[in-house]
Structure formats: structure tokens, C-alpha cells
Amino acid sequence: MATHHTSFLIWIYGLLLDTESIYTECMQSILDRYGKVYTRESKIKAMGRPRLEAAQVVVDDAGIPLTAEEFSKELYSLLFERFPTARYMYMPVPLALATSSHTAAFESKMSQKPELLSCFSHTVCGDNPEVKNGKPSPDIFLVAASKFDPPPLSMDKVLVFEDAPNGVVGAKAAGMNVVMVPDKMIDPELTKEADVVLESLTSIRLEDWGLPAISFD
């Protein structure tokens, strides 16, 4: 099934940077005040969505007396304290980044990871004015692909790494191929749209996709 790919996209949450566990802990710390639990169902619906949409999902599902804006403001205050401690995995291949994070959140995550940021040829954040709609729409992937130099000849020459169902839907809608490394909480039924599903990013064989083989430190 190998296809020659000339460009490579990757979504950073939970893959290169272990931020998904930080999100979960910070979400739960807010819900604890109301005796609520950040459920598996809420997490699956919220993952990969724009900031306020994700907050609205959690607020509605938990039934807490906060607006999405209030919840998001408190959440990001907690996240900004924790992001610089996120662990990362280095991939020595050319990369571009498409992330639903707004620029301020992204910069916080990367503040102590300059060597990781240098791996990317370019980044596209969720508040980029060219991104009209958040995941699961394909906008962010199409914008990121368009910024490769030279750009891919067609979208099926782009390989995307994702960990969220909303991101998989968006990348497939863009006509791209998707390798999914899902959170263990995600129902296997929600991984079926991905071309390949892996338990760990370290098990990827990029040579199967026409890219150089890599090793992980």
C-alpha cells in the first residue's frame, strides 16, 4: 500500500508533546469544584476542536454554571503553568505543524522546547486568519499543506499524524492520508477512518509511505 509522499504534516498534541494528559488533569481540576468528572465521552468530543467549542462541550456535558469563555479562561491559566513541563519526542525528518491551539497557547507549550520547534518548516495555529473553520473541517490541514515549498502536487501526497477523531475526519476531508495514534480512552469505532492506527508513534514505518526510515531517541 506504499505511496510516495512529498510532504509531511503532524499534529503535536499527545504525539511529539505529551500535552493531552496535562489537558485532562487541568480540566478535571476545574470540574472537581463542582463534583463533576471529565468523562471519556466529553474528552472524545472535545479533542481537536477550537478552544471555545471544546470548552462548550465540557461545560454542557458536565452541567456546570460557567460560560465557555469563563471555563476556557480558567483552563488556559492552568495550562500555561503546566505546558513548559511537557515531555517531547524528537523526529529528525522535515515536518510542518497544524494545531488547533491559538498562538499564545502554542508559544507557551514550546517555550522551553526551541530544539523541537526548529524541526518544523512552518506552523499553522487555530487562530490563523486563513483557517476559517476548526476541526473537523479540513481548513487547517489545507492551509498547512499549501505552505510547503514546493507545495504537494495533490493532497494524497500528504501524510498526517493525528490522535483525535475530529482531526482524522478533517484530514480525510482534505484528501490526505492519516496515521492515528489514539488516546487509550477512545472507542476503536472512532478510529476506523484512519488509514493506519498505531499504539505508539515509535512503531511507525515511514518507509511504507515513501519517506526515509527514522529512529527515535
Rank of each mutant, 00 (worst) to 15 (best):
V93Y: 14
N133K: 14
T103A: 11
V124M: 10
H102R: 14
P151Y: 02
H122V: 11
P165S: 05
Y13C: 12
S72H: 08
Y34P: 01
A144K: 03
L97T: 03
D127S: 11
V37S: 03
I64R: 00
A68D: 09
E70N: 08
S121C: 09
L153F: 02
S137G: 03
R205Q: 15
L9N: 10
F120K: 08
L95M: 14
L75E: 07
S100Y: 04
E107H: 11
T103S: 13
E41F: 00
C125L: 08
P212Q: 09
D217H: 09
A145H: 05
K45G: 01
N166R: 07
V196W: 12
A194S: 09
A68L: 05
M185E: 15
S42N: 02
T67L: 02
V181E: 01
L31D: 02
F83M: 12
G210E: 10
F71K: 07
F216A: 07
M91D: 04
F216Q: 09
A86P: 03
Q56M: 05
A2N: 12
R51K: 12
A55T: 01
P151S: 09
K157D: 14
L211E: 07
K192M: 11
P212L: 08
E199C: 06
A105S: 15
Y76A: 08
T19Y: 01
S215T: 14
L75P: 01
L78R: 13
L31Q: 01
D61M: 12
D60Y: 03
E69G: 06
M27H: 13
L159A: 04
F141A: 11
G126W: 02
C119Q: 15
R40Y: 00
P50K: 08
S154I: 00
A173K: 13
R33A: 08
I204M: 11
L75Q: 08
L95H: 07
K43M: 04
F8K: 09
G14V: 02
S21V: 08
D61W: 01
F120E: 10
D163T: 05
V143I: 13
K113Q: 14
S21R: 13
A164M: 03
V131H: 05
I140R: 02
A62P: 01
G210T: 06
T39F: 00
K147H: 13
K157G: 05
D187H: 09
E70Q: 15
